[in-house]
Nucleic acid binder design. Structure first.
Lengths: 201, 201
DNA sequence: TTAATGAAGCTACGCTCCGTATCGTAGCAT
DNA sequence: ATGCTACGATACGGAGCGTAGCTTCATTAA
């Protein structure tokens, strides 16, 4: 317990503010991966890093905010839309990549953050504005391009189109009603693109 | 604090096991509505009802299980599919009713339970098998009827169809990316039914 | 009627984590 | 050299968890 403190009594003894931020964020991220959201506590991070609890509370109001910061810092810009032969194809590939990410530790983090966000208004807001928002904007642009390119109907609402396309991914992630396999992505993607209804040709 | 205990020292003094179950479930439900999931604790329910904490722990292993029981007991069978001129119409109306329910306290409970389920395997399992599962089965039957009636394409996977139709509802509930208004339901429903893609007629 | 038994109540405990306050002091800038 | 700022240490009160030991009551069976 707090090996660092013992070891550093002589040499370092005290970290610079900038270092503290970085050390905490990286430790939080690692602990998140290794032990999950519930196991990460302010106290455990303080103990693990040797940084005083008070120093953590000086930066973040609570655990959720701290974890969110670590999450966003490490995740970076997210998953891009690759260039493909068509915009629809680009969306399909991005969705496959997102589903793949959802299957791993990244998915676990989203699960936990979104779960916790149900009880924490600020976290929910942060999740919306800092994670969901930017990604929706990027996706909207691609869809608009697809509309201009006459691949997608021009009369659909962009937000509604996004929810129709991506909603089920989060639904399956949270509920676990089915796999997030490539086959599923392809199936649902084409179902939504082409419609469930029998054609009245 | 524990007015009941004082008051009943003479007359009732001790509840029967059956009564205890009922009193707890109904109190949990009310508190859930009034104060939300996080504010409901085993200790607060014990204090409110005057029933000993130990008696609660004799019945449920933890708060989540207790809350789930209260939720299911009061909610009952859920929202039915009404008879309409077509099966697709029936689904549309049921979805409108579900969205309406999601807008109220019932939606808050789903939010909280599903949020908590991200951290509690047993609760997640209970949520899947006792809430999601039965409703999916009912929906599948309607979709199968719709397929037999040639309203919906026969080549779609039932689970995938369900996720395409309903995923966004849970997504919006959890993330709050947009309203759950009737207009939205109509928009997304018809988008998924008819497809986002431009027809290649 | 009386004893046994099962279940409730009561109390108290140890634990973890929260979030805050206080205080001495190290590191940096001037 | 001197001050300012931020860190580390420590301590605290509080909530809530889940468990244990014990007493008390209601029901049932002898």
């Amino acid at each position: 317990m707090s090996k660092r403190v013992e070891k550093d009594r002589r040499s370092v003894k005290r970290l610079r503010p900038r270092q503290i931020e970085a050390v905490i964020i990286s430790t939080v991220f690692d602990e998140l991966l290794e032990k999950g959201f519930r196991a990460v506590t302010i106290e455990s991070i303080s103990a693990k890093t040797g940084i005083a609890k008070t120093s953590i509370y000086r930066r973040w109001p609570n655990k959720a905010a701290m974890v969110m910061e670590a999450f966003l810092f490490r995740i970076g810009p997210g998953i891009e839309f690759p260039s493909k032969s068509s915009y629809v194809e680009s969306i399909r590939f991005q969705m496959l990549a997102l589903a793949k990410a959802f299957r791993g530790p990244f998915g676990s983090m989203i699960k936990a953050l979104l779960g916790e966000a149900q009880f924490d208004l600020e976290l929910a807001e942060a999740f919306r504005t800092r994670w969901i928002g930017p990604r929706r904007e990027a996706a909207k642009e691609v869809i608009q391009s697809a509309i201009r390119n006459k691949e997608i109907r021009p009369d659909v609402d962009l937000d509604q189109a996004l929810d129709a396309l991506y909603g089920w991914l989060y639904y399956r992630l949270m509920i676990g009603s089915g796999p997030l396999s490539d086959a599923c992505v392809r199936g649902i993607f084409s179902a939504v693109l082409d419609g469930l209804r029998v054609r009245q040709d």
